[in-house]
């Protein structure tokens, strides 16, 4: 069975499972919107200030929302034993791990990208900045799923795993946050966001190449 077929089959299974538990997808989305709306309440309604903060706030909220749903990536399979069966399939683990991460991104990353413009408008971002925001999220959220998968795999089955994942993964998210929020800031201040977006793209390629191997090693360690 070629590798692409395995990934497609796994994607179908993951999306079917996500559809059966639509609640989980929505909770991530609601969390994203709520966190982003908290900042104006905390900082005050001054439009000029909010416009400056807009990109950063949306990015931080997206980062926290993506991290919230990391636990689901392997934990439910580990609990009911299907993860062991996946490890014992003939296909190389890197293949189905990439499938799993892609499925996690589709379920928790893409909804954030779709909702982000609405929040951007709420913060008074202009048309061009909104476009850069969406594009930076498009490049950034897969990296959040990729790096997050390492944290999820390492903390499999640990009590208090949720908090631990955030401690492990947040420092590694910082470059993505800097370049993502920086892109929006660059677009708004007229400096142009090409540099940030290309660096973000670079990190995406690097993460796509390296993290599945790290996740495979982490799973082998955690399943023993």
């Amino acid at each position: 069975m070629s590798t692409s077929q395995t990934v497609i089959v796994l994607l179908r299974r993951e999306l079917l499972l996500a559809m059966r538990r639509r609640g989980d997808v929505l909770t991530v989305l609601f969390f994203f919107v709520i966190v982003a709306s908290l900042f104006p309440l905390g900082v005050g309604p001054d439009p000029k200030l909010l416009r400056l903060m807009g990109g950063g706030v949306v990015w931080v909220s997206a980062l926290l929302a993506a991290m919230l749903s990391l636990g689901r990536m392997f934990a439910s399979d580990h609990a009911d034993g299907t993860l062991e069966q996946l490890v014992l399939t003939p296909t190389p683990p890197v293949v189905w791990i990439t499938g799993k991460i892609l499925a996690h991104w589709l379920v928790s990353g893409v909804p954030l990208i779709l909702v982000a413009p609405v929040l951007g408008v709420q913060f008074g971002l202009s048309g061009e900045a909104l476009g850069v925001l969406v594009f930076s999220l498009l490049l950034g959220t897969p990296v959040l799923s990729l790096i997050g998968a390492i944290g999820a795999a390492l903390t499999l089955g640990l009590r208090g795993g949720g908090v631990l994942v955030s401690l492990l993964v947040l420092p590694l998210y910082i470059p993505v946050l800097i370049f993502g929020a920086g892109a929006v800031d660059g677009a708004m201040s007229g400096l142009g966001a090409e540099a940030h977006l290309s660096l973000l793209g670079g990190i995406l390629i690097l993460a796509f190449m390296l993290t599945p191997w790290a996740v495979s090693a982490a799973l082998r360690i955690s399943i023993e």
């Binding site: 390492l154 590694l172 910082i174 470059p175 800097i178 920086g182 790290a214």
Partner: peptide, 20 residues
Amino acid sequence: LIALVGVVNVPIIYFSVRWW
């Protein structure tokens, strides 16, 4: 493993923070 993943990320973090 997390130490190795961390050490790969330290230069990236340092570069992005200086850039920022």
